[in-house]
Write a protein that binds this DNA or RNA. Structure first.
Length: 220
DNA sequence: GGTACGATTGTCT
DNA sequence: GACAATCGTACCT
């Protein structure tokens, strides 16, 4: 794979995810999520995420308590929660916080840093050709690029030999310190229209791969 | 067993 | 910028 060994990185253990969801969300920016499938490897440097704070967060799938769909959120941190949206798209989350709290970070966008050819062919197979910048710009495109679907729900990202692995850089790049920006979450309508109360979207400033903000449709 | 609704995207105007 | 597409899940009867 192309990820050079000279870039110090580690695979955080379960405890790393068992922290407050806002801390984990912030720390996930710049980390790389890598999927290994029979047809190859795709690595993604995360540039945009959103935090969902378990059963106390009206915007979270966990707000109404455990169900078959969100069971993974109530389980161990450090696992993938994948769900289908609008019957068309998949969205990928990383479960965090203490087990049972059901907090999760939605992975919204990233920059393909490995396996761009494979990511591109997956995107082509799913529809229309796009620029490389769009390969993983938006949660559904990101899932396609990484080749993730419902069968990956519950996958453990803390296992270095697993088929989905999250790596975290041990040291921040000194020359290009990451500027982290925050804002209202995208498309969350369960917050009573008060998206401003939950400025829990985090992204890396000046990243072309960050998806465009769209407010949730007003709820009647 | 039926119905309403969505953490979005692509396409058309 | 606006809108249709499309189906699993939750919630109701």
């Amino acid at each position: 794979m192309n990820v050079p060994d000279t870039v110090p990185s580690s695979v955080p253990g379960r405890d790393w995810y068992a922290r407050p969801v806002l801390d984990v969300a912030r720390d996930l920016l710049g980390a790389t999520l890598t999927t290994r499938t029979p047809d190859g490897i795709v690595g993604l440097r995360l540039t945009e995420v959103e935090a969902y704070d378990g059963t106390t967060d009206p915007g979270s799938h966990a707000y109404r308590g455990p169900s078959r769909r969100n069971a993974t959120m109530f389980g161990e941190p450090g696992r993938l929660y994948v769900y289908r949206h609008l019957g068309l798209h998949h969205c990928v989350n990383v479960v965090c916080g203490p087990e049972g709290e059901a907090s999760a970070v939605l992975v919204r966008a990233g920059e393909v840093v490995d396996g761009a050819d494979l990511a591109r062919s997956r995107r082509l197979a799913s529809g229309v050709a796009r620029t490389d910048r769009d390969l993983a710009r938006g949660p559904a495109r990101l899932a396609v690029a990484l080749g993730l679907d419902l069968s990956d729900d519950g996958a453990d990202v803390t296992a270095p030999e697993g088929h989905v692995v999250l790596r975290h850089p041990l040291v921040e790049p000194v020359e290009t310190p990451a500027v982290i920006r925050t804002g209202p979450r995208v498309g969350v309508s369960g917050d009573g229209g008060r998206a401003d109360l939950f400025p829990w979207r985090f992204w890396l400033d000046a990243e072309p791969t960050v998806s465009a903000y769209r407010a949730a449709p007003a709820r009647t």
